[in-house]
Structure formats: structure tokens, C-alpha cells
Design a binder for these strands. Sequence first.
RNA 1: GAGCCCGUAGCUCAGUUGGCAGAGCAUCUGACUUUUAAUCAGAGGGUCGAAGGUUCGAAUCCUUCCGGGCUCACCA
Length: 530
Amino acid sequence: MSDREAAAACKAWPFQEAQRVLQRIGGKCPEKGYVLFETGYGPSGLPHIGTFAEVVRTTMVRHAFATLSDVPTRLFAFSDDMDGLRKVPDNVPNQSMLSEYLGKPLTAIPDPFETHESFGHHNNARLCAFLDSFGFDYTFQSATECYKSGRFDPVLRKVLEHYDAILNAVLPILGKERQATYSPFLPISPKTGHVLQTPVIARDVSAGTITFEDEDGTKTELPVTAGHCKLQWRVDWAMRWTALGVDYEMSGKDLIDSVRIGNQICRILGGTPPEGFTYELFLDENGEKISKSKGNGLSVEEWLRYAPPESLKLFMYQSPRKAKRLYFDVIPRNVDDYLSFLAKYEEQSADERLANPVWHIHEGSPPRETLHMTYSILLNLASACHAEESSVIWGYLSRYAPTASPETEPILDALAQHAVHYYQDFIKPTKRYRAPNDVERAALEDLAQALEALPTNLDAEGIQTEVYEVGKRHPFPELKAWFKALYEILLGQSQGPRMGSFIVLYGRAETVALIRRALAGALLGKEDVS
RNA sequence: GAGCCCGUAGCUCAGUUGGCAGAGCAUCUGACUUUUAAUCAGAGGGUCGAAGGUUCGAAUCCUUCCGGGCUCACCA
């Protein structure tokens, strides 16, 4: 079976989606010369995990499609940057300046960060930087540019022509209040520059204009073309599908009705609605919808501090139609699942590979992983050996696999780095060191000297015996108390790893130094005062 | 009201063309000359929400029902 046949038979959802796209175009290249995938972005906020999810998933479908067909593809990341600013975001500078521009298109508002041509341009740049950091292949599209350049003009005129039909399509899903003032066209006031939400009083199809009442009450006539008017979002979406010839766009289940309306409008405009895919929303650990304003759930940045992007992509790949909880605890699991899919890939047949998530995550060519070490082991390791940096973990890993190094095992190296972050943020703050009493002090001094005197090639077992011997030489009620003291004084926790293996892992000289610092009271400063 | 998702071990969930019910954690037992919680080995634990149907065979497909959750109707 060829790759293409195998892909056509593959049940993995990106292939199923790609099949629908292939059927849509009837196996032939569309007139525009390519199959168009689109993802939308509202630039009044910064890119977030939902943006990421949509682009990753769309990219997976796009790549699956490229495996099924030779028809070229493009992905537009479309920014609705002509949208009027409704509210001043509280996470940006120059708040008072921005408040003077409320109601104006984002691309007509100065950049509060003073680094770009406009606020819209600034956020667009943030979007692109965000997407670039993951290496996504896309073409950025600006709504402002599309409107002003006339690219949307032919379809805008059609919207005017089929005004009533479009109105009738949208009205049923609106509330009563909204129905009264609703207009698909949002004229941009020539006087104030505001995007107006105002009824259309008259329209002239042949001239391509609408008449409305401007903010100061004067009757104003404006062309619907060339950027003089924007469209209300649902109609805007459908117009864009029609004008650009969008073949595929996914959206959240909260938009189901809007997609339905959009499809109707698209047909009214003479277009063919894109193939859609409705994905489920993300929930937090309590099963509540994740929203930026509530700040629940998890940000992309948080995830990437503790785990590599591939694990987040895996999360996005898995069950997109299922409402999944997105919170901290799911990270380690997704890392380990990613690693095991990666390991499994090596021994799979060609068509099994197509259903392996790593095939989709890495666009058909996943990296080879030679040293298999789960993330949970690394997390344990990081906390057991007090890993302030990944080199400590590597100290252990190179003993385990002498030929391995950060250079030969980049995946493992990244994981080690992430495990250190995990240790620093979650384990270390819980540590509480205490000062030794006189008996313990003497025993620790004894241990430090004993460790220095031991033959350098002694193994973990031998060191363990020596630790034991030192304990016996001092008046502990029972040896249990000696080990407990070691953990509490040196590691800041009431239990810990076997001392012999810990010392080998942490380093003999380093352990001696650690003991000396403990004796000097230097570890007490690390105590968490909270 | 309309629509979507979920219900599988104590917990969180896998289960990919229907073919002997799985993982992680938790629990229990044992090993490793310290510890209930480094690590390792092993064990117990499920009427797959319920009832019908299709099938030689259903966690999986169809129907109905029960239970839980979410979304839409202001903005995009």
C-alpha cells in the first residue's frame, strides 16, 4: 500500500478532515491555485492557548491533506485588525491615551507600546512572533489591508445587493434589542473615525453606497467598499470565506450557530462555505470554561516552562472534540505520552505510523529518540538531587548511559531543563531546613571527613555502608533518627533517597560541601519563611 | 428553548477500522543492611451509567432513557 492509500484509509482525525477537503475540491486544484486553510485572530488581545490550539490543529489537517494530494495549500492567519476598540485592555501601558481612541479601528490607534505603526500592528506582530516561535508555516493577512486595498470590494457589493436576505439570515439568532439596531454594515464615521453600529437608512446598490446617521446626526452616504465600511463579524466571516475562497476553517463549539448562519450567508453571496470542524472548549480543573479574563486554566507560557512544545501539541492533537481539562497536572502525563508515542513510532509499520500522534506533531518526520527516560523519572531525579541546573541531572544520566550527552540527546536535555524548573517552582519552596543539634553536628563532621577519606571508586552500596557506620559511631537513639536528620538538615525534607545512591548522584565532593554549608548554617537561609 | 460533550478500577483518564477490559496515581505485599511516600518486583480492584436492538461476538455500531457538564440567545 502506498503512503497515499494508507493515508486515505487512516482513521486519525486529521486525515478524516483532509479527506473532506479533498472531496470538497473534487480532487482538482481550485481556481485560485491552492487549497486555503484559515485561522482567525482577534487582535484586541494577545495570542493565547486557544490561538495555539487552532493553528496546530489546522496545520495537522493541512499536512495530512498534503499527504493525500499534490494540490498546493496555504494557511492564512487572518487578523481582524479593523475591529473597533471596545475596551482599554488593562495589561498595556498608556491607558489614558488609549481611552481617547475607543471605538476606532485597531489599526487607527497609536501603539501604546510605541514600537509599531498602530496598536493593531503591534498585536499583529505579537501574533506572528508567537506563531514563528513554534515554526508554523502560515501567511499573515490583515483585515484592514484587505478592506482598504479593495480585495473585498466585489463581495462587499454583493452583501449590499443581498442585504435583505443576509439580514434575514442573521436576525433569528439575535436578541430582540439587538435586532432593532442591527446592520451588517458598520460604517466608519468620516468625522470621528469610529466604527459605527448604526442602522442603515438607505442603500444604493448600483452606486455601492449606504446612508446612515453619523454621530453628530448628519445623514451621511458612504461607499461600502475600499475600507469605508466594515462588516459586522458574522457577515464579515462569511464575506471573507467567499472573497478569499476559504476551504477549511475550524472553530469552537460556542460558534456553532454562527457557523451555520455564516454558511447561509456565504451561499447567498455565491460562495461555497468552507469545510468546518467544531472543536470542544477547554475546561479548568473544576470543569469550568477557560477564559482569559478569569485567568483560570493554563497559559502557553506556563506549559512551556515545564514541558516541551511537542507535549502541548500532543494535548491539542488528542480528542479535539472532547471537552478536556487543561491544568497543570496534565502536563507530565502528556510529556510521557509523547515520549512513548515517539518510542513506539520506531517499531511501527508505515501505515501504523500515520495514526501515531507524533507523525502529526512533527509533520511526518518525528525525531529519533535513543535514550528513553520518562519525564516522571526526571522529575523525581530533579527533586532527589536538588537539581538547580540540568547538569546535575546529566551527571546521573551519563552514568546511566555513558555515551549520552546534551548534544546527542536534545530531547532528553530539554526535558532535564524542564524538570529543573519543576523542581525550582514546586519542590524547592516546600523545603524546610533545620539546624543540627550537637550530636548531629558531630556526626555530620565525622561523615564529611569519612567521605573525603573513602576510596574514590567506591560504589553507592559502599558509601551507604559508610554512612551507616558513621551513624553507629554516634549516640543516636536508633539509626532511623540519623537518616532522618540527614534528610532534614541537608535536604530540607523529612524523607529522601537512599543516601548512598544520592551521594553518588550528587557527587562526593559536592556532598561534603553541602554538609559543610549545613554546618555553617548556610542552608537555613533557604528556609521558606511563609 | 436549541446544540455539543461526557458517564470505563478509589482518583484522572486510554481503549484507532466490533475480537479475552488497560495505563498512571492511590491501596496492599515483598525486596533493597534508614523512612508510610528514592528505586525495583508483585498483588488486589471494574455487571464499561441503564434498557433494548444489529452481530457468531458490542466498552466500541443503532434507538430510547437516566445522570453530570458546557455552549449559544450582549461582544467578537
